[in-house]
């Protein structure tokens, strides 16, 4: 079998509160293969977000090993992690996190400011516009976040996550603030991206309905993987 895109070996994370270490992740073993759509599920406080943040290089583990493409990336410098986030990873957050008073198009373009190899402004713009079209916002590129519905904002956020052509997309409760109809739209979009573009997607959710959209799922409780479902679709 090919090397997994991501492999975790006994990953641990503890937060330090005052003098005591509070363990949140207590030894996670996990393999994420390229092209999968994975759901991290489990009860609140189980450590899903914590795990996803470590997987996405937003946070660092306090134990265990993290291999990306077979390479050990457990202890990378802050700059190296920033570069990895920029080149390989896209994020979609529960609360959208768009820049206020900034048009949808500018929001989508923002990550490119930090890209190492930049294209011409025209090319970048054309690419961002095509992404917005793709998420169904071709008519609303000049809208600011305050002028858009939650679903529209989340679609802008997805376009933004895609602008760097990432290999992996991390989404933490991407539908948590959306009604069931828009949730489904957004989840279908993830499915499409996964199937058509082959982008690996990791979804964090505690809803079984959302989990049903995934190809496979890990259940996390109290910092440990307590089970997994492998649903070949």
């Amino acid at each position: 079998m090919a090397t997994p895109l991501i492999e975790l070996r006994g990953l641990e994370k503890a937060y330090r509160l005052g003098d005591v270490d509070v363990p949140v992740l207590k030894g996670i073993d996990m393999e994420i293969h390229e092209g999968t759509l994975l759901a991290l599920m489990g009860p609140s406080g189980g450590g899903k977000s914590t795990l996803m943040n470590i997987l996405g290089f937003l946070d660092v583990s306090t134990g265990g090993q993290y291999l990306l493409d077979g390479r050990d990336v457990t202890t990378l410098s802050a700059n190296a992690r920033a570069d990895l986030r920029n080149e390989r990873i896209g994020f979609v957050f529960q609360n959208f996190n768009l820049l206020a008073r900034t048009s949808a198009l500018k929001n989508v373009l923002m990550p490119l400011e930090y890209a190492k190899h930049r294209k011409s402004a025209r090319e970048e713009r054309a690419w961002a516009e095509s992404l917005l079209q793709r998420v169904g916002l071709g008519e609303r590129m000049d809208y600011q976040p305050s002028q858009m519905s939650g679903g529209q904002q989340q679609r802008v956020a997805i376009a933004r996550a895609l602008v760097n052509r990432p290999k992996i997309l991390f989404a933490d409760e991407p539908t948590g603030n959306l009604d069931s109809k828009t949730s489904e739209e957004v989840l279908r979009m993830f499915q499409e991206l996964n199937e058509q573009e082959g982008i690996t997607i990791v979804l964090v959710t505690h809803s079984a309905e959302v989990g049903a959209f995934a190809k496979e799922a890990y259940h996390i409780k109290d910092g440990l993987i307590v089970g997994g479902t492998y649903t070949e679709k």
Binding site: A78, A82, R85, L99, M110
Partner: peptide
């Protein structure tokens, strides 16, 4: 702060 966090999340180094 949130904006800074977001910019960092999409790959901005501290120096930027």
């Amino acid at each position: 702060t949130r904006e800074i966090g977001l910019r960092m999340a999409v790959g901005a180094r501290g120096s930027r």
